[in-house]
Design a protein around this nucleic acid. Structure first.
Lengths: 250, 250
DNA sequence: GAAACACTACGGTCTTGACCGAAGTATTCG
DNA sequence: CGAATACTTCGGTCAAGACCGTAGTGTTTC
């Protein structure tokens, strides 16, 4: 395997208790100095220095020198996401909890910063691209004139979006492994969906539930099925992408 | 820190090359036997057996016994998600570490998702709070009536902000270590600044440069000095509270 | 300029755990 | 039944690396 060693290298870095403590302390987006990180990780400054060098070299931490201090910060939201994921896995670990129910909800529709993600969001993005309302390339998207009219008729306020570049880099959907719409257009769509009661927030979660109104409107507006699958099995039938749960032989 | 050791434990499991290879081989949702996993990981069956036991105990792998064989698969999509995330981080890793160095421009003004950050942004937040246009607490902000009028006169469109859930939220600034304005209000300010040519994007960077117009307008509107310090040293000399925007000497 | 401070580099100790050979337990097949 | 297969347990070797004491560099403060 080719990817194995690479992920092992990164995982091994996170796999040391001292380093894991440092990363945890930075998870909320704060910026801490080497000394502070040494303290939270419970090791001597010399040891911490070595750890921090490794984490920086590997691109997990970003470094800003200022005077005699070094400020460290998680290098990217991706790192934070990995840490979050590890916490989830660590939590559910030995206890055979069936969190997958909630997972299914998350997979269907959720927020990602200020825009939508999940099956629904990917389907919307697909549709908009297919209809040539939006042009998507590697790291940016562009609204066509037709798309502008489309959103206009829909009543989505895109005025903010016109002048703005696409700030949020392409947001890869972890559950669908395909891009969904981020940036101002994505935000506008989420805003519209919330305002018109297509979707609702789930308390203490990034999950979104699609309302009956939303199911109807998503069908008429985008031609997509907004209802979540009734059980996990159908999840993979609905979308052609793989990513379904393996069926154990027997 | 409490979460640190837990995520370290999981990460350390993934952090071994042999185990990482096993997990990678299972990433597509397949179900493989112990022997097959021993082969892909390049270790002897005895060694593989130990690895698989650990991964199962930790809840990373699900096990199905069938006759004399043991079938393994990833225990949950969360595990797959973590592996994916690790690959992303491993990929982007050492590449553009330099972005943060020489970050004087970044420290001064940059985008943070869809709003502004850096000295300028912190100064704006300070000013808005000081003028009682905005009330900021731990994890939320609120626009006062006076603030609403202020933005109205300024011509900043806050309509999106009203309906959005998180319309005004403090976001800790990594360089200044003090909050700046995020949420819809933050986004609206950035939008306004871009639209009126107060600031401009720097290509391929999150950095923003303050234009001559911006320097003038930031002074009249917020009473702050928008020009960047001529060199890094002076940044912190000027104002007593660190993080204040420096008044350029000479 | 001297002292305090923040961080880094080096050297040596010591624990952890990955590895495989050999032997042991299930399960299937002839 | 005994042989082959699939996997696990045990024991001993060995290398990687986490840790800190000491000593260094660069920066700020007095």
């Amino acid at each position: 395997m080719d990817t194995g060693p690479k992920i092992a290298q990164v995982a091994a870095l996170i796999g040391d208790p001292a380093r894991a403590n440092m990363l945890s302390a930075l998870m909320d987006g704060r910026t801490l100095t080497a000394s502070e990180l040494a303290y939270v990780s419970g090791v001597a400054p010399q040891t911490a220095s070595g750890h921090l060098a490794k984490l920086s070299d590997a691109g997990l931490l970003a470094l800003a020198k200022q005077g005699r201090r070094r400020y460290f910060r998680l290098a990217s939201p991706h790192v934070a996401r990995v840490l979050e994921g590890l916490m989830v896995v660590a939590q559910e670990g030995p206890a055979r909890r069936n969190l997958w129910r909630g997972g299914e909800t998350l997979r269907h529709a959720r927020t990602c910063y200020d825009h939508m993600a999940g099956r629904i969001a990917v389907a919307i993005a697909d549709r908009l691209v297919q209809q040539s309302f939006i042009l998507l390339d590697e790291d940016g998207g562009q609204l066509t004139d037709a798309g502008r009219s489309f959103f206009d008729e829909l009543g989505v306020d895109l005025r903010l979006a016109f002048k703005r570049r696409v700030f949020c880099r392409p947001c890869l959907d972890w559950s669908e492994r395909r891009p969904h719409l981020a940036g101002a257009v994505g935000a506008a769509i989420l805003h519209h969906a919330l305002e018109h009661d297509w979707v609702e927030h789930v308390r203490d979660s990034r999950a979104l539930v699609v309302t009956p109104v939303g199911i109807r409107e998503l069908a008429t507006t985008f031609g997509i099925e907004g209802a979540p699958p009734t059980d996990g099995r159908e999840a993979q039938v609905a979308s052609l992408s793989r990513g379904g749960v393996a069926v154990i032989p027997g």
